[in-house]
Design a protein around this nucleic acid. Structure first.
Length: 572
RNA sequence: CGGGGUGUAGCGCAGCCCGGUUAGCGCGCUUCGUUCGGGACGAAGAGGUCGGGGGUUCGAAUCCCCCCACCCCGACCA
């Protein structure tokens, strides 16, 4: 491909609206352009990479027996009503105005529709059906370029089995395929296991990539690979030990002391002697949550414990419930439900609010002074705390956890019979008995693979492709295309390299200066640059030299023209 | 949906607070010349509903009201 006629609008300056690296690089390298928030056009260079990624996905899906479909994005609303997902998706679902259609955000319904009509016998299974197709979701806030869009490419796969045991096999096949896909795409990823969500599934795994641009927060252990969404992550951290002697309750005047830090400062005590109080409202009823020191309440854990959603109490509610404002609230004489974090179990000699403005209580013994108190894991794990992963018979890992943001690349999910039951996808088993098909669903964000790769493979100058995803194998740069010897040599090389089976991007632009071409080449990040300039052409009697530059390392070497093909072969 | 910010030439921005010639700068683009291995130089050009609508005023990019778009933080995320 000749760059003089190839549409690759590179940008010298960083577009203001782009914040995350992958987005900036895709825009600057002329791979994408935005049409509207969360809606992007892929330009030729970007689409070339998308196609390479798609091909890898296809190969690995076919390897596990997957069969590729192409389903319509435009779906009759009625099908979505059968599973009550018009409601479940709510505003996220795009509705077509002049027909009873929706734009599909995923394809469980359509795949189940086909399964229902065809998979009538246990002999018809297992099946793995997949497609690579555009999904539509009316995200309230698209962001980070292509990472969270309103329209995006997804590889979605669905398995159909006769039993949960059989589903386990299909699920494991996908686990294998996904690892193969992400390995081949040279991504550094990790797997977050089984988070029992509200979707009625029996198991799931998320494939994640560490990134500041990510929207999930996870706790990860480098040592053993433990990874958990922060919403459920636990850690090993000491509780408040129980002192031998419980002191008597004492009221302390603490004017203008609101926070735990201020309390510690005021009383010259350690924060692990304090119980922090937070009042939440759940189901219209107040709950006092006690945390040790400055520990953060993990609202997801609290909601799990209560089995209902929670919200923080409003200031006027706090005053009415406790008789005090936030900062002076505590467990003593609190008449409603009290749940304390496990770190506070049986703790004594604690300081906490007195439910009276500007007063705190000391000498609190939770066992002695708080009659009806429950304990639960309610705290948010933090970086540096001990990994809770258990080794069989050897205690826990206890290496240091790291908490960071991550991008979800893929998700494999044991669906069970939710959709087959709702839509009547039933088969006959060996005994002639009717059963619902047991399903799994499996998704990969195709553009996210691209974005994650770029997040992990760039430097200050631009993209650094790995050869497996690179849009081209070689960037051939004719430095001064006004000189005949350069034109002749580079045209010859272009023909030779292309003939040898390499995909070559030939910078044959007539008017671009050397520096300009170098900068563009580094930005585009093709793995190998072959630089043809008149000086080096003259350097050898035997036909001249060209320079070969390896983008990732920055290494340059001069190569005789006649040795070039061999050299490139060595590199590749 | 709540909070914050931005919208002026293809891109990046100044001008706005404090209204007043013909709305400016850099990059890019066109033409000519010079240059030619790390985003060159000179000269001459083209390119604008100042996001949209309404209002105030003799006069609005500038002040006021409404709307729209985009970005960031949060909420949401099968």
């Amino acid at each position: 491909m000749k760059l003089s006629t190839y549409f690759v609008p590179t940008l010298k300056e960083v577009p203001t609206d782009a914040v995350v690296q992958s987005h900036i690089l895709m825009l600057r390298a002329g791979m994408i352009r935005m049409i509207s928030a969360g809606i992007y056009s892929f330009l030729p260079l970007g689409y070339k990479v998308i196609r390479k990624i798609s091909e890898i996905i296809r190969e690995e899906m076919n390897n596990i027996g997957g069969q590729e479909f192409h389903l319509p994005a435009l779906n009759p609303t009625e099908i979505w009503e059968q599973t009550d997902r018009v409601n479940a998706f709510g505003d996220t679902l795009f509705h077509v105005k002049n027909r009873e259609y929706v734009l599909a955000p995923t394809h469980e319904e359509i795949m189940t529709f086909h399964a229902r009509n065809v998979l009538k016998s246990y002999k018809d299974m297992p099946q793995i059906w997949y497609q690579i197709q555009t999904k539509f979701r009316n995200e309230p806030r698209p962001r980070s370029g292509v990472i969270r869009g309103r329209q995006f490419l997804m590889k979605d796969a669905y398995s159909f089995d006769v039993s949960y045991d059989a589903l386990d096999k299909s699920y494991m096949l996908h686990d294998k395929a996904y690892r193969a896909i992400f390995d081949r795409c040279k991504l550094k990823y990790f797997v977050v296991g089984a988070f029992s969500g509200a979707m009625g599934g029996t198991g799931s795994e998320e494939f994640m990539v560490k990134s500041d641009a990510g929207e999930d927060t996870v706790a990860y252990c480098e040592n053993c690979g433990y990874a958990a969404n922060l919403q459920v992550a636990t850690s090993i951290v000491d509780g408040k030990s129980r002192d031998k002697k419980s002191e008597a309750l004492k009221e302390i005047h603490t004017p203008n002391v609101r926070t735990i830090d201020e309390l510690c400062e005021f009383l010259k005590i350690n924060e692990t002697q304090c119980a922090k109080s937070r009042v939440y409202i759940s189901d219209g009823k107040p709950v006092l949550v006690l945390m040790l020191g400055n520990d953060d309440v993990n609202e997801a854990k609290l909601e799990n414990k209560l089995g209902a959603t929670v919200r923080p109490g409003r200031p006027e509610e706090l005053a009415e419930i406790t008789g005090a404002d936030a900062g002076s609230i505590g467990p003593i004489n609190f008449k409603r439900r009290i749940i304390a974090d496990n770190r506070l179990k049986d703790a004594n000699n604690l300081y906490s609010g007195a439910n009276k403005n500007d007063y705190h209580l000391g000498g609190i013994d939770l066992s002695r002074d708080v009659k009806k108190i429950e304990y639960a894991d309610l705290r948010t794990a933090q970086s540096g705390e001990g990994c809770p992963n258990l080794y069989a018979g050897q205690g826990s890992c206890n290496s240091k956890l790291e908490v960071f943001s991550a991008i979800e690349l893929g998700h494999i999910f044991k669906l069970g019979t939710k959709y087959s039951e709702a839509m009547g996808a039933l088969y006959l088993d060996e005994k002639g008995k009717e059963n619902p098909i047991v399903m799994g669903s499996y998704g990969i964000g195709v553009e996210r693979i691209l974005a994650c790769f770029l997040e992990q493979n760039h430097d200050e100058f631009g993209i650094i492709w790995d050869k497996i995803l690179a849009p081209f194998d070689i960037q051939l740069i004719g430095l001064n295309m006004k000189k005949k010897e350069v034109v002749d040599a580079s045209e010859t090389l272009y023909a030779e390299l292309t003939g040898a089976g390499y995909e070559v991007l030939f910078d044959d632009r007539l008017d671009a200066q050397a520096g300009f071409k170098f900068k563009d080449a580094d930005l585009l990040g093709i793995p190998v640059q072959v630089i043809v300039g008149d000086k080096k052409l003259k350097e050898s009697a035997s036909g001249g030299k060209v320079e070969v530059k390896i983008r990732r390392t920055g290494d340059r070497l001069d190569v005789e023209l006649k040795d070039l093909l061999k050299k490139i072969e060595e590199i590749y």
